[in-house]
Design a protein around this nucleic acid. Structure first.
Lengths: 339, 339
DNA sequence: TTGTAAGCGTTATCAT
DNA sequence: ATGATAACGCTTACAA
C-alpha cells in the first residue's frame, strides 16, 4: 500500500493534478461536482499531502526549534509545556534540543536547526555562552529568534524574561522588613545574567536599607551539584559560626540544599535562620517548613515566548516589518513558613 | 543573501549540478581537482544542502517523534533526556508532543507525526488509552514504533518497560521482611497497566507471605492531583483510626503526599508508619526522612527506547526483516530512612 | 471551470 | 571524469 498522491487521485478521476490540488484546498474555481468527487476519493484513499514536497514548495516547515540547557528542571520543563501548548494552538511542531549547559553544543545545535530549516528558533542560553555569532547567524538566515530567561541583551531579537534584579531586590527587602539583618546570599555561577542580576538585587536591597554589604556572606553554588554546594555552604556557616539569620538562595533547589543541612544540624527554620528560595517549584510546598519563594511563571513564559515567535514568523511571511520586543513577566513573593 | 544551491555552485564553476553533488558527497568518480574546487567554493558560499529537497528525494526526514503524557514529571523528563542523547548520537532530531493524559490528543498527535513523515515514533501511552488503531495505523504506514513504560501489550511493536509487578512485589516483600504487617497500598488509576501491575505485585506479595489481602487497605490516588489524594487518604487512615503500619505508594509523589500529612499529624516515620515510594526521584533524598523507594531507570529507558527505534529504522532501510523485542529494565530497592 | 507547465533543490540512472 | 535528464510530490502563474 503505497502513499496516495495527487497524481494518483487525478488519474483515477481522469482530471488534472492541478484541479485535484485546488479542489482539496477550497479554491473557488472548482465546480462543486468535481470538488465533491475529489474529496470523496481522497478520503477513501486516505490521502494526506506529502509534507516534504509541501516544505520544498512553500519553503516553510511549520516546525520550530527549541534549545534549552536542561529538561529535568522544574522551571524549564514548565516553560517547555507552555511552548508546546502555544505551538499546538498554532499548528506548529517543536524540535527540542538540550544544550546541557555547554556552549559548543548549543552552537552546534543552532547549526542543526538551521540545516533543518525550521521556521523559528527559541533559546535559553547556557551558562557558558559568552559569544553570540551563532545567534547572529540565525538572524542572518532570516530565521526568527526569540530568547527567553537566559538571554543576551546584545542580540537583536525579541526576548521574554523576568526582572531578576527587581525580584531579588523585593525578596531581600521582604526579609529586611521582617527584621532579618544578617542576610546571606547563596548565589549561582558568575556568568549567567540571571545569577548576576539576582546577586545585584540582593546587594542593592541591603544598601538601600542601610545594611552594609558583606562579601563574606555571599556563597557560591555554581557546580551542577548546586544542591550539594548549598548543603556545604550551610554547613560552613554553622560550623564556622558565621553570623547569619537568613539565607536568600538563587534557586529553590539551592534553598532546599541549605535547609537540608540546617535541619540535620537541628537549626530551627525560620527561628534561627530563615530561608528564601527562588522559582516556586511545587515541591517547595511539600517540604517542611514550606519554603518562602519568588514565583517565576515558567508556563506563562513558554506561552509568551512561543507567541512572540509565531507572531514574528507571520509578519515575515507577509513581508511586514518586524519589530523586536522584550516582554518582562511579573514575579511575586510567595510567603510560606521558612521566613 | 539568498541560500546557496548546487545550481549556483555549478554555474559559478561552469560545471554540471551532478558533478557538484558528487564532489560534495565523496563519490569516487570525480577528479581531485574539480572536487577541491567545488569544496572550496561551497565553503566560501556557506553551502549546506536544502533538507526539504533531500527529504523529498530520500523519503526520510532524519527526525523522530515522541509523544509523552507529561513533561513536568521527574521520571518522564529523565526518559526524554535519554532519548535526546541517543538521538544526538545517531544524528536524528526529535519532535516532542505532550499528550496530557488525553487519549484524543494522543491520537491526533500520532496523525500530526505521520503527516510530518517522521522516520519513527516513540510513545508512552496516556492513562486513558484503551484503543489502539492509531498505533496500528503507524505500523501500517510502515513507520517504526517503540512503546515505553506505559505500553499496550497487544500492539505488535518493540517495547521498553520495567517489570512493575515484580518491582512492587519485591518492595512489599521487603516491608514484610522488615516486620510490617498492616501494609496499605496507595494505588494509581485503574486503567494504566503500570498501576494495575503495581497493585497486583502488592497483592501477590501479601498472599505469598501469609498476609490476607484487605481491599480496605487499598487507597486510590488517581486524579491529576494524586499528591492531594495521597494527603487525604493518609488523613483518612489517621482520623478513622485504620490500622496501618506501612504505606506502599504507587509513586514518590504519592508517597510524599502521604508523608506530608503524617508529618503534620505528628506521626513518626517509620516508627509508627513506614512509607515506601516508587521511582527514586532525586527529591526523595532531600526530604526528611529520606524516602525508601524503587529505582526506576528513566534515563536508561530513554536510551534503550531510542536505540531500539533507530536500529529498527536502519533495518528497514536495508530492507532487512525487523523483529520486535521487549526489553525489561532492572529496578532495585533504594533503602533510606522511611522504612 | 479546467489544464499546462514550470519550478522548488536534490539524487540517481544512464550516456558520453 | 562529467553531464543530461528524469524523478520526488506539490503549488501556482498562466492559458485555454
Amino acid at each position: 500500500m503505497s502513499e496516495t498522491t495527487l497524481k494518483e487521485i487525478a488519474q483515477k478521476l481522469g482530471i488534472s493534478i492541478t484541479t485535484v490540488s485546488k479542489a482539496l484546498k477550497n479554491y473557488t474555481d472548482v465546480s462543486p461536482k468535481t470538488k465533491a468527487a475529489v474529496i470523496e476519493l481522497a478520503q477513501e484513499l486516505h490521502y494526506y499531502p506529502n509534507s516534504f514536497a509541501v516544505n520544498l514548495r512553500t519553503k516553510e516547515s511549520k516546525t520550530i526549534g527549541l534549545i534549552i540547557p536542561t529538561i529535568v528542571h522544574h522551571f524549564f520543563s514548565n516553560v517547555i509545556e507552555g511552548i508546546l501548548e502555544e505551538a499546538e494552538k498554532r499548528d506548529y511542531l517543536v524540535i527540542i534540543l538540550q544544550s546541557n549547559e555547554k556552549y559548543e553544543l548549543e552552537k552546534k545545535q543552532v547549526g542543526l536547526l538551521l540545516n533543518k530549516r525550521v521556521d523559528g528558533i527559541l533559546i535559553s542560553l547556557t551558562n557558558e555562552t559568552a559569544e553570540f555569532e551563532h545567534l547572529n547567524s540565525i538572524l542572518e538566515h532570516k530565521t526568527s529568534l526569540v530568547l527567553f530567561d537566559k538571554i543576551a541583551k546584545i542580540v537583536k531579537c525579541s526576548k521574554v524574561i523576568i526582572d531578576d534584579r527587581k525580584a531579588s531586590y523585593n525578596a531581600v527587602t521582604f526579609l529586611i522588613k521582617k527584621g532579618y539583618k544578617k542576610i546571606a546570599h547563596f548565589r549561582g555561577s558568575y556568568t549567567p545574567q540571571n545569577s548576576i542580576d539576582r546577586f545585584l538585587g540582593y546587594k542593592k536591597a541591603l544598601e538601600d536599607h542601610g545594611i552594609t554589604y558583606d562579601p563574606n556572606l555571599v556563597f557560591l553554588c555554581d557546580t551542577n551539584q548546586d544542591l550539594i554546594d548549598a548543603y556545604e555552604n550551610a554547613k560552613k556557616i554553622i560550623t564556622e559560626n558565621i553570623e547569619v539569620d537568613a539565607i536568600f538562595a538563587v534557586s529553590d533547589l539551592v534553598a532546599m540544599g541549605a535547609m537540608k543541612y540546617l535541619k540535620e544540624a537541628g537549626i530551627e527554620i525560620p527561628k534561627q535562620i530563615a530561608v528564601f528560595g527562588f522559582s516556586n517549584w511545587y515541591v517547595t510546598e511539600l517540604i517542611s517548613p514550606k519554603l518562602t519563594t519568588v514565583d517565576q511563571p515558567g508556563f506563562e513564559m513558554g506561552l509568551q515566548t512561543a507567541s512572540l515567535l509565531f507572531d514574528e514568523i507571520n509578519m515575515k511571511k507577509k513581508n511586514l516589518p518586524v519589530t523586536t520586543k522584550t516582554i518582562t513577566l511579573e514575579t511575586k513573593i510567595i510567603e510560606r513558613e521558612s521566613t
